[in-house]
């Protein structure tokens, strides 16, 4: 059998019918695109601060929301623009509260959405790392040890030059199975395993 014939036969054998997607998944894709579209518009308008304030509005209650809106309006010069950015991540909030450790304290929100869990982290406390090093966000499951890890990475980040970290990740992970969240400092050496240097941690599930 020639190579091309064998490839055809293999493709025939391996292709499986895939059911149509759940409409919620399609809607989640559209929502993510709409949010990206809004963020791009905000960037173009020079009103980046209003997005951060929009996230704060959802997290810290009505009083803080109003204050954040006023601040954002002053920064952006447009109350209408700020109102349009309200909404945050659509879905069921599974955790909203502090995450603490040797790296200080941050605010963490974990939201269940159609595309997985969306993790939003805000902290002004984490030290700025040397070039090449980074922070990594983990969902940690039971029995996790250095020799037998049971954890899923949700992504990596650096604080900005002012030490501010306002980051959003998405991860296909269930906090019921991986109930602890950790932020570790990683050396950026290409080794995918965690360094063990936990700077922030909290139980979310």
């Amino acid at each position: 059998m020639r190579d091309d014939e064998l490839l055809d036969l293999l493709g025939d054998a391996l292709r499986e019918p895939v059911p149509a997607p759940d409409p919620q998944r399609v809607e989640a894709i559209r929502t993510a695109a709409e949010r990206r579209q809004q963020a791009a518009s905000a960037d173009a308008d020079g009103s980046v601060a209003s997005i951060a304030e929009s996230r704060s509005r959802r997290r810290f209650g009505a009083g803080a929301l109003a204050a954040a809106a006023v601040v954002a309006a002053l920064v952006a010069g447009s109350i209408a623009l700020v109102a349009a950015r309200d909404g945050g991540v659509d879905g069921e909030v599974e955790y909203s509260g502090s995450i603490t450790g040797s790296g200080g304290e941050g605010e963490l929100v974990v939201t269940k959405t159609g595309i997985g869990r969306v993790i939003e982290l805000d902290t002004d406390d984490l030290p700025i790392l040397p070039t090449g090093e980074l922070y990594e966000v983990w969902f940690v499951g039971p029995g996790d040890t250095p020799d037998s890890p049971n954890r899923i990475s949700a992504g990596t980040f650096h604080p900005d030059p002012h030490g501010v970290s306002q980051v959003t990740f998405a991860a296909a992970v269930d906090p019921a199975l991986y109930p602890r969240m950790e932020i570790t400092a990683e050396p950026g050496d290409g080794d995918p395993s965690p360094s063990g240097v936990v700077v922030l941690a909290v139980q979310v599930g």
Binding site: V18, P21, I29, R30, A33, Q37
Partner: peptide, 23 residues
């Protein structure tokens, strides 16, 4: 269009690519 963040374009791309990627 997706690079312009069109939700319609992203939906079409998702529906187009999903079967192969899920497989």
């Amino acid at each position: 269009r997706a690079q312009g963040h069109s939700p319609d374009a992203w939906e079409d791309l998702y529906l187009h690519c999903r079967p192969k990627l899920v497989g």
